[in-house]
Design a protein around this nucleic acid. Structure first.
Length: 459
RNA sequence: GCCAAGGUAGCUUAGAGGCGAAGCGGUGGACUGCAGAUCCAUUACACGUGAGUUCAAAUCUCACCCUUGGCUCCA
């Protein structure tokens, strides 16, 4: 039984999809006006893991993500750079998708661009207008907050608080909290609408897209913590007003922030790090491990030393994997006396692992169970209690872990065959030298290979 | 001001009434020609402070101290 922490109720709830084992998942994608940063990476790695686990547990997941490719920030940036907004958007969208692929985020079924859903957006606004949930002024179409008394139910705010102490940027609005569905603009880029030329507001694209692919109600909506207010509130107000069906979403999931040295990452503080910067220095899997070593809802603090720790921790798992691979290949011993006991041990470990994951995707606890198991099996291996068939089962379990967590778990061996043969010759020569106890020359070979990142470890 | 999250060994993170956690790092030992990996031991008074509830509190209650974040740009 999978339990998910639902931001709406602030409780962990049992996951029960609307339609049997089919899950409709929507996660807010980026506004593509600049390079993606490591905070984006945190969020999308988290939802990638969540999707992988749900699939592992037999759910069929349709993972939909929007791409905000029309927005004031895009237009501003484009005009600064003297390029077309759509060009700029496409460029950063490509980079975003590249970044995600490198990070092993690969479970999104469909990326929906805002600009390719204008008819749906306009249609939603028309329906809001027709039922007096929205009104028109000289500057645009606005959602009438007062028509939706539940506004604020996700972020637990009330309308009075929201309308106090606020300088309204547009005084044609009835209430300060009313938000734009359509902005009347006749500068590029614009689209035609029943209300003249203009552009959609920020919140409406998501509900237009989710209604198009999922309908008015679906299972899980995710995003960063910073989107709860006002973005997700606005989505709820729009969709539930249009359809009259509640709730729009069964489970709201939000990822915690990624901070840098305890502070929020921001350009003005100068601690801003893009995914590309990161990947110049660190392996994507190391960052992935770093992200998954903290629970997805907790804040996570980025630092060089944290990444070093992650690297060493991940190495431990890889080395264990390599060790059992070698043992499976070898013909050292075959001992079946302990098989029953070890199979039980492994099953128990797996069941604990799944229990941790079931509990709102508790990856840190799941990892601690993996490490415990590695330690345990290392001990059994040292005592020569482990048969090959057990090792193969251990390997299968680790591979399953790798699939859920998104680690490839095969040795990074990018050498071509010819190089491998040459290395094998060197190893053979070194073996002969060692037989003759020529330590000086054999250490020399090992050290030189080490310089080329070829690690030789004697048994 | 309002609303959140949190303070757990040197560091990073879990846990959530009774069995003293996981990883990283440090030290000593076993094994190695050496190194590495692995194992064993150790680092260790672990739970912000003060009260209370309880047979039992890191975990529940209350108060207090401190940190961080959000409050219509935001993953």
């Amino acid at each position: 039984m999978i339990k998910i922490y639902n931001t709406m109720t602030r409780k962990k709830e049992e996951l029960k999809p609307i339609n049997q084992n089919k899950i409709k998942l929507f996660v807010c994608g980026p506004t593509v006006y600049d390079e993606s940063h490591i905070g984006h990476a945190r969020t999308y790695i988290s939802f990638d893991l969540i999707t992988r686990y749900l699939k592992n547990q037999g759910f069929s997941v349709f993972y939909l993500q929007n791409i905000t490719d029309i927005d004031d920030k895009i237009i501003k940036r484009a005009s600064e750079l003297g390029v077309e907004p759509i060009e700029l958007a496409r460029k950063y969208e490509r980079e975003y998708l590249d970044d995600m692929r490198v990070l092993g985020v690969e479970n999104v079924n469909y990326y929906a661009r805002a600009t390719e859903h204008l008819p749906e957006i306009i249609n939603q606004i028309e329906r809001l207008m027709a039922n007096d949930f929205a009104y028109e002024t000289e500057t645009g179409i606005y959602f009438d907050e007062s028509s939706f008394p539940e506004f604020g139910k996700l972020s637990r705010r009330n309308l009075e608080d929201l309308n106090i102490h606020r300088i309204s940027p547009d005084d044609t609005k009835r209430n300060p909290g009313d938000f734009a569905l359509w902005k009347k603009r006749d500068d590029e880029p614009f689209w035609d609408s029943p209300w003249g030329k203009g552009r959609p507001g920020w919140h409406i694209e998501d509900t237009a897209i989710t209604e198009e692919y999922f309908g008015p109600q679906y299972d899980i909506h995710g995003g960063g913590l910073d989107l709860i207010f006002p973005h997700h509130e606005a989505e709820i107000a729009q969709m539930e007003s249009i359809s009259g069906e509640k709730p729009m979403v069964r489970y709201w999931m939000h990822t915690g922030f990624l901070n840098v040295k305890g502070e929020k990452m921001s350009k003005s503080l100068g601690n801003f790090l893009t995914i590309r910067d990161l990947l110049q220095e660190y392996d994507p899997e190391v960052f992935r491990f770093f992200v998954l070593s903290t629970h997805y809802r907790s804040p996570i603090d980025f630092s060089q030393s944290a990444l070093e720790q992650s690297k060493n921790s991940l190495d431990r798992i890889y080395k264990f994997m390599e060790n059992i691979d070698e043992l499976i290949e070898s013909d050292l011993y075959e001992n079946n006396d302990y098989d029953d006991k070890l199979i039980r041990k492994l099953l128990f470990t797996r069941s604990n692992f799944l229990k941790a994951m079931d509990n709102d995707f508790n990856t840190p606890e799941a990892l601690s169970i993996i490490f415990n198991s590695i330690k345990d099996f290392n001990r059994e291996i040292n005592e020569k209690n482990v048969s090959k068939s057990i090792l193969k089962r251990v390997k299968l379990f680790l591979l399953e872990w790798g699939e859920i967590f998104g680690f490839k778990l095969h040795s990074i061996n990018d050498a071509d065959d010819r190089t491998k043969e040459l290395i094998d010759i060197l190893i053979d020569i070194r073996g002969k030298l060692r037989d003759k106890k020529d330590w000086e020359l054999s250490d020399f070979i090992r050290s030189k290979l080490n310089d080329l990142n070829i690690i030789l470890e004697d048994k």
